[in-house]
Computed example of a mutant assay.
Amino acid sequence: MLSFLWVGTCLCMDTIEFNLVMADTENSSSDESLDVTSEKFNPIKALYSSSSIIPVPSAQTYDNITKYEAAIKGVIIKHHNKSKDVSNKEKSVKQHILLHQDSNAEEKNQRDLKNYRNVLSRMGNSLGPLQVLYNCMETKLRIKVFTRSARGIRGFIEAYVAAFDKHWNLALEDCTETWTRKIKRKAPALGAPIKLDDIIEEEDVPKVIVKETNGKTETLMRHVSQMLLRGEQIAIIVVIH
């Protein structure tokens, strides 16, 4: 392999020396091949000949044909600074991202305001059993809500519906509550009980009335002006016609 490279190098050097000798030893009839304005101009011979004459020694040199054509046509080629281009591109990308984020945030805010829904707006769009509850609220029909305890039905509440949500949490007005509980037979451990009237004014606490007593249990009743009932405490709701 090295022998082939050496032979190729020798051949190239011999060719260059041969061209130089031929360019310098040719007669005057071959000078036309060195004349740039002649039709017989030979550029290869002009490159290797030492007697080649440059027509305009003070002519400006150009790196490539593109620059030469631009100079002939009078076009000015601007040299771009790559670092500035990169920084400007990064700035434009950041500005585009910020504008896109701002526009998305504005559209989202407008969409949220347009589709804003709360408990009051959701009640009007209720379907199924919740729609019946909404009709009772609009027409001022009393309902009877049966509440549950740990072991069964605790009692019931008759009231007007003021508001509700999809979890069956109810805001009630003019409530009459009736429930059953065990009779406490044990004496208080801390002595005689203190009257509630001595601690809290009478109008602040709903009065509890013992409606019925049956052995170990008693049925109580009270009236409350407003009540918030959690959905997990509701067993069934009945409309009172």
Rank of each mutant, 00 (worst) to 15 (best):
E32W: 15
N214C: 10
S33T: 13
D85Q: 12
I200E: 04
K186D: 08
T213C: 04
Q60K: 14
G231K: 02
N64L: 10
P188S: 12
R148C: 09
L190E: 07
K78Y: 04
K140Q: 06
V119A: 11
H241N: 07
E232W: 01
V239G: 01
D102M: 10
T219I: 08
E107F: 05
C10K: 04
I209H: 01
D174Q: 14
G231E: 02
S51L: 06
Q233L: 12
H96R: 14
L113P: 00
V36M: 10
G191V: 02
D14W: 11
E69M: 14
L228F: 09
Q110P: 01
E26G: 13
L190H: 08
Y160D: 05
S38W: 10
D14Q: 12
A70L: 05
C12S: 14
I143C: 02
I97C: 05
K144Y: 01
I76R: 03
S103F: 11
I237Q: 03
N27A: 15
H223G: 00
G124W: 02
M22S: 12
K114L: 15
V86M: 05
E177D: 02
P193T: 06
D174P: 00
T178P: 00
G215Q: 04
L141R: 09
P188K: 05
S28Y: 15
T15C: 14
V238N: 03
F164S: 03
T219G: 00
A150D: 08
P43F: 01
F41P: 01
N125G: 06
K186I: 08
A23T: 08
R111C: 02
L11F: 13
V145H: 09
R230F: 12
I194G: 00
M123I: 11
K195D: 13
L113Y: 12
N42K: 02
E106N: 13
I236F: 10
V21A: 12
M221S: 07
M137S: 02
I236N: 04
K78I: 11
M13G: 02
T213D: 00
E177M: 14
M123H: 04
L113F: 13
Y116D: 05
H241W: 06
M22Q: 12
L127W: 05
S58C: 08
T25A: 11
I194R: 07
Y116I: 01
V36H: 06
K40P: 00
E202L: 12
L228D: 04
L99I: 05
K195P: 03
L11K: 03
V56C: 08
E212Q: 07
L11S: 13
R148Y: 01
D204N: 12
T139W: 01
G231S: 03
T15G: 08
S30Y: 15
C12Q: 15
R154V: 00
A163N: 05
K166E: 13
L220C: 09
D197F: 06
A235E: 09
K182G: 01
A187C: 07
D204S: 09
V238G: 00
Y160H: 07
N64H: 11
A23Y: 10
V205L: 14
L196S: 09
D31T: 13
S121K: 10
E138S: 07
H241E: 08
A23E: 14
I237M: 07
V239F: 05
K45G: 08
W168G: 00
W179Y: 15
T15M: 14
G74Q: 03
V75T: 09
V238D: 03
A171R: 06
R142I: 00
E202C: 08
